[in-house]
Structures are given as structure tokens and as C-alpha cells.
């Protein structure tokens, strides 16, 4: 049984579905990477999992429970975490407070997790008292990831964590993703830097027009000439 399982998901923002049958399965040991053209429905898939829009058909099972109709405030305590593509930090709050907000649902002592996050992103420790709105794009992305980790998730979903980052920052973020996964957290991420991301993905999904086009291990997708031609730019 997979950690999360999407079966034939149809979902959208209004009456017309954007997703027309998406299937995915991720284990706790997996790094799943979703790639595809702009507007394919990658972000929409993550939002559908996170209960941020209305799922019209299909089922989502997380950690053995049907979560198709559950909303975010129920999913976070179950171990699901999400870093949205945009506006993913509280700009008026300090870095430290952003992290605390990630742990809002926790009632236990969070200092251990805080230390782990600061260890993972040493830049943040120095800026801990600074409002997140005053950080650089890369640092904000770290704050966003750190915030999502504070709830001790079983599955971490990231929407284009490397968007707009320099190659150096991108590699740093990817390294952290691999490390987080090694610590036993399942990863499901959307990436535009498809080649780099698929290189370490255990599962890859190509999405187009709201449907799965190809599914396989990251390496399989990289090797597939069709995928390479139409989605990875030759």
C-alpha cells in the first residue's frame, strides 16, 4: 500500500474540470517528480490533493485513509505538507515566526524540529529575527520549505521549489530534498528543471492537458525518446 494514491482524479476550479483522470502513487521512500508544459495541471494536482479545490471524481488515499474530501486543516495533522508555488511565506512575520506557523497544529515541544531546520538551512538561522518579506528569493524558498517541515510531515509536496533560483541555489534545494527523503519523508514535487529533477527521482510523471502522459522511474523518463523530444526539450 502506497503512502498516497490518486485514482482517476477529476478536479477543477469551477464547473469545468482541469484534471481529467490523474493517477499517481508515492511511497514514503519515493521522490516523485511531476513535469509537463505550463498549464498542464501540475499545480492543480497538488492543490487537489491538499483539499484546496473541489474534486469531482476519483479517490485520494493518504496513509490508508480516504482523504478525497478532507480540507487542509485536517490533512496537515495527518502528515501532509505543502509548499505552494507562489506567496509561500508570511512576508510580515519573522523567519522564526514563519517556522512556528508551520508547527501551528503541533502541541508538543517544537524546539528539536526548529534546530533541525536551522541546521538544514544555516542561512536562515542568521536571519531568524528578520521579516521573511525582506529575504531573497532563494532564502524565501528555504523558509517555505522549513515551514512545511515543521509539522513533521510524512509526505512533503513542493510546487516548483527551484523556480527563479540560480543553478547553485537550485542544486542546494535539490540536495536538501534528497536528504529530507533519506530521513523517511516522501516527496512529491513539481519541477520545471525537469532533467535535473528526474535525475534523482524514483518516480516521474509527465502531465499534459490534465492527464498522465508517461509514468515511470526518473531514469526511464529521461531515457524515453518521446518524453525527451516533447517534454524535455530534445
Amino acid at each position: 500500500m502506497s503512502l498516497i494514491d490518486l485514482k482517476d482524479i477529476k478536479a477543477g476550479y469551477g464547473a469545468t474540470p482541469i484534471l481529467n483522470g490523474v493517477n499517481m502513487a508515492i511511497d514514503a521512500s519515493d521522490i516523485g517528480v511531476i513535469v509537463g508544459p505550463n498549464g498542464a495541471g501540475k499545480s492543480t494536482t497538488l492543490k487537489a490533493i491538499f483539499g484546496l479545490l473541489n474534486v469531482m471524481d476519483g479517490t485520494i488515499t493518504f496513509d490508508g485513509r480516504d482523504t478525497t474530501r478532507l480540507e487542509a486543516d485536517r490533512l496537515v495533522p495527518m502528515g501532509l505538507s505543502f509548499v505552494p508555488q507562489e506567496h509561500n511565506v508570511f512576508t510580515s512575520m519573522t523567519v522564526h515566526e514563519n517556522l512556528e506557523m508551520g508547527a501551528f497544529i503541533r502541541r508538543d515541544d517544537i524546539s528539536g524540529t526548529l534546530d533541525e531546520v536551522y541546521e538544514m538551512f544555516p542561512d536562515l538561522k542568521a536571519k531568524r529575527r528578520q521579516p521573511a518579506g525582506e529575504l531573497s528569493g532563494g532564502q524565501r524558498q528555504m523558509v517555505a520549505m522549513g515551514r512545511a517541515l515543521m509539522s513533521k510531515p510524512k509526505l512533503l509536496m513542493l510546487d516548483e521549489p527551484s523556480a527563479g533560483l540560480s543553478p547553485r541555489y537550485m542544486m542546494e534545494i535539490f540536495e536538501q530534498v534528497v536528504k529530507i527523503n533519506a530521513a523517511g519523508v516522501g516527496i512529491l514535487m513539481v519541477e520545471q528543471n525537469a532533467r535535473q529533477a528526474l535525475a534523482f527521482a524514483t518516480k516521474g510523471f509527465v502531465l499534459a492537458n490534465g492527464q498522465n502522459r508517461f509514468t515511470g522511474t526518473g531514469q526511464e523518463l529521461l531515457d524515453d525518446p518521446d518524453v525527451a523530444k516533447s517534454f524535455l526539450g530534445g
Binding site: A72, D73, F82, P84, F90, M101, F104
Partner: peptide, 24 residues
């Protein structure tokens, strides 16, 4: 306080507050 910070978070970015599991 935790709730007070949650309030500021929600005033700052209601969608992200929801995503963080804050009980809006």
C-alpha cells in the same frame, strides 16, 4: 501567543495560513 501569531499569519496570507493547517 500561538493564536495571536496565527491571527497575524491569516491577516498576512490567508491561503498560506490555511495550507499551514491554521484553524482559520
Amino acid at each position: 501567543s500561538r493564536l495571536g501569531k496565527g491571527m497575524r499569519a491569516m491577516a498576512d496570507n490567508p491561503d498560506l495560513a490555511k495550507v499551514s493547517g491554521i484553524n482559520t
